[in-house]
Write a protein that binds this DNA or RNA. Structure first.
Length: 199
DNA sequence: CCCGTGATTTAT
DNA sequence: TAAATCACGGGG
């Protein structure tokens, strides 16, 4: 059962927390690759100095941030890496959640082929660019509607939600430039999970 | 610790 | 047009 539009059309902190425990699914090259989302970061839009849309900045790169909840925002950085965000909120409200890590559950052999540097299972998807490499996510997936796509979507967790007591909040990674926004606890991860980045 | 790598953004 | 930046990852 896939997550519907209503799941995504909330503020990015609520979506970032609720995404923990859900399953990211990618169909590529006739393979089904999947993993449980274990680490996210919320980006709060025009007010957030760490966000690509700070001050309402709207460019060709970040255009999909305005498509509304449930779309993908995939960007290229450092000359070699892709990162995937899940857009939250309503259309014309540029807020999103960065997917920082998943615990791989399906298609590990195929992920390993794409992730040549990974030695252990915990190295496969334990970072925002690692999970994109493992799942074959790139700029072609930018703007994808996760509610409708056949090749990239998120399935609802079966069983109980992650308990609030098992969700750790900490400062976001790699945003030291963002002044007072750098220290805000907008990174969320599942406590004691081995597939979280920098554990 | 340092470096690759190049699109994107920002300043001139 | 040019320069600086970068929501990262891998290797020492």
């Amino acid at each position: 059962m896939r997550l519907g539009r209503r799941f995504y059309t909330r503020d990015s902190i609520a979506v970032a927390r609720a995404l923990l425990g859900q399953t990211l699914v990618r169909l590529v090259d006739d393979q089904r690759l999947a993993g449980v989302i274990v680490e996210t970061e919320a980006y709060l839009g025009a007010i957030d100095k760490a966000a690509h849309t700070f001050n309402g900045r709207r460019t060709a790169r970040n255009a999909s941030m305005w498509l509304g909840g449930g779309h993908a925002y995939v960007y290229f950085t450092y000359g070699m890496h892709y990162c995937m965000n899940v857009v939250a909120g309503k259309a014309e409200e540029p807020v999103a959640v960065l997917l920082r890590a998943i615990e791989p559950t399906e298609g590990l052999d195929f992920m390993r082929q794409r992730r040549k540097a990974a030695k252990r299972n915990a190295d496969l998807c334990s970072g925002p660019a690692k999970l994109c490499q493992a799942l074959g996510i790139d700029r072609q997936n930018d703007g994808t509607d996760l509610v409708a796509s056949e090749s990239l979507f998120i399935e609802k967790r079966r069983g109980p939600a992650i308990a609030p007591a098992d969700i750790v909040a900490s400062p976001r990674v790699g945003v030291a430039y963002a002044e007072e926004w750098a220290a805000k606890p907008l990174r969320f991860y599942i406590a004691n999970n081995l597939h979280v980045s920098k554990h």
